[in-house]
Design a protein around this nucleic acid. Structure first.
Lengths: 331, 331
DNA sequence: GATAGTTTTGGGAACGTTCCCAAAACTATG
DNA sequence: CATAGTTTTGGGAACGTTCCCAAAACTATC
């Protein structure tokens, strides 16, 4: 109370109306000079707001954490958090015990205002609990339950586009290296693949569908399993796997795209220097992170808000790994 | 106060001594039943402890955030946080304005008990400020100032080992693709390279030293710049760059290791499926993360503690990208 | 210049803990 | 069974804010 009073200062800090401009000036000057900063603990005690958002990566998703996907998602999330003066807390689990120990802490919900959960797992167990405890949250990855707000990329449409691209280039035996069977994005991308084949009257051959786990190494192995079945083109559900697949082909002295064409999903930077550069489906990961935060904050500010269900489009990026229509026609 | 009193409950919660076993039982039973959980805000208001650790990634380092290094570091950090009942908050900056806006918030230090800073940048500006404000912190990445606690990997020795390995295999013109000139790890690895050459009486040729920025794409470009100078072997300061370099060689139809040998640094998973599999220097990144937290907590618990300066060893992992001694001898 | 109305300010209570000290309840001893 | 000593318990104060309401200070009107 260097200048005048106490609760007036509070008003100035939170710039509430009804304080004389002159006083306002004086107080904010002193605030600036002393470098005063309101104590967040005391604030949150009375407000019931912490200014913290939690990012939860469940155990089943955690193995994907090393995927290039996560850093980009986190960049988006932190950028939006910074813009809106929120802090991000990160929850990763490394074992079942950790998960069961920390879930109550998360559900009790005194630590943060809202949660972003990367719930790309089929039958995620945390989502229903969050719902039951009325913890405000948004899922990165779509969710069946109509109560759940989510943001996702249009995986089905992206995969569909990829496969149609291959079909239009004239390939017949089109295979796919899918992601983990329990991963929702993987399921969706597989669905897009199936839809495209069905719509164009192509047969579906189970031998041409193999699974990886989104890692480069798994893409390598998957492609080796695929080779005996003589695919002409492969839709690979992630660029990391596509790079691995490319290496398997190189190892087997199989020319891309002349002998086998490849299309990926993600558009991560190394795709541009793959040999050949990788045609792929670009997904706006950072944008997903940014919007996740913004939608969550909307929900926090307006309790009555209906659940938001947002799906962002993807984009076909054509490079060299599928060959061109012209070349194919000539062939 | 379902059972008895108030401050007794407090004692039970924090299991302080001097409470009758019988009462203890009764209270904890009720606590368990009601699912009571102490309010962190109120707690931290009186304790001046938040149970939160901040991980700060300064702007100059942020471009490296997409490197596979970070997810692994974060896994280590979160694992240790979970073990010790701490929460991790993440601070990434995306512009100068953000940085200057958030630094005061961080320095004010009401938000967390301590900070882990990834200060691998030469002349980082945050470190002196943290010191001046007496914020407890630990740097991931060594630091000159003897007041600073840090944990780092022995980059100099790792690089030294790598180059000695090349020398022992009989290579003469040994080049290096270094990291960003302002990055401390990059500087150290370059130093290790120089030391090894000097110790073995090899000439130092500036044409054989090029820089990348740790990304795969930059490794690709760096190798292209290197090719005209006819290196026999290259020490690449990160596996990501090494994979890029490998691709440049493949592009130029240069056999590895027969025409040019390559050794990386990191041992990230794709190194195993590179063609040829990459010989590299393994660094214990996750361990760094775990220890960063543990050392920080030590410091928090004992104010008088001397600054800790920890350097972890690296390990040479031999695969095929350098050829073998036997082959070299035959050659 | 008194009155009513409006704007601005100040003080008490509350948020949910922990800490400290005093009170109460036990226990052992003569 | 009184006393001293020890263990256990309870209540007040404090942590640093915000919110609410009442008091004070202005402003306009007659």
């Amino acid at each position: 109370m260097a200048g005048v009073s106490r609760s007036t200062v509070s008003r100035v800090i939170n710039n509430q109306p009804g304080v004389k401009p002159e006083v306002q000036q004086r107080v904010s000057k002193i605030v600036a000079e002393t470098g005063y900063y309101p104590n967040p603990a005391a604030r949150s005690l009375v407000n019931h707001q912490t200014g913290i958002i939690g990012l939860v990566v469940p155990l089943q998703v955690q193995s994907l954490f090393v995927d290039p996907y996560f850093p980009r998602l986190i960049q988006g999330i932190t950028q939006a958090c910074n813009n809106h003066d929120y802090t991000l807390s990160l929850f990763l689990f490394h074992s079942d015990e950790e998960e069961s120990k920390l879930y109550p802490k998360i559900l009790r919900n005194q630590l943060f205002d809202g949660i972003i959960i990367t719930a790309t797992q089929v039958n995620d167990i945390l989502v229903p609990q969050l719902l039951a405890n009325k913890v405000p949250f948004i899922s990165v990855g779509r969710h069946e339950n109509s109560q759940v707000s989510f943001i996702d990329v249009d995986n089905v449409a992206g995969a569909y586009t990829a496969v149609i691209h291959l079909i239009r280039l004239g390939y017949q035996r089109i295979a796919t290296i899918a992601g983990p069977a329990k991963n929702l994005s993987a399921v969706d991308r597989l669905q897009g693949y199936l839809n495209a084949l069905r719509d164009r009257g192509y047969p579906i051959d189970n031998e041409l569908i193999v699974n990886g786990d989104f890692t480069e190494v798994s893409g390598y192995e998957a492609m080796q399993r695929l080779l005996p079945h003589k695919p002409e083109a492969v839709f690979v559900a992630s660029d990391a796997m596509a790079v691995g697949a490319l290496r398997a082909l190189q190892n087997g002295n199989i020319a891309v795209p002349n002998q086998i064409a490849l299309i990926g999903f993600d558009d991560f930077p190394p795709a541009t220097i793959a040999i050949p550069p990788l045609t792929t489906i670009r997904q706006p990961i950072k944008q997903v992170g940014i919007m996740a935060v913004e939608v969550l904050l909307d929900i926090l500010n307006d309790e009555t808000k209906q659940p938001q269900r947002i799906i962002l489009p993807t984009e076909l990026v054509i490079r060299d790994s599928c060959g061109s229509t012209i070349e194919r026609r000539r062939y």
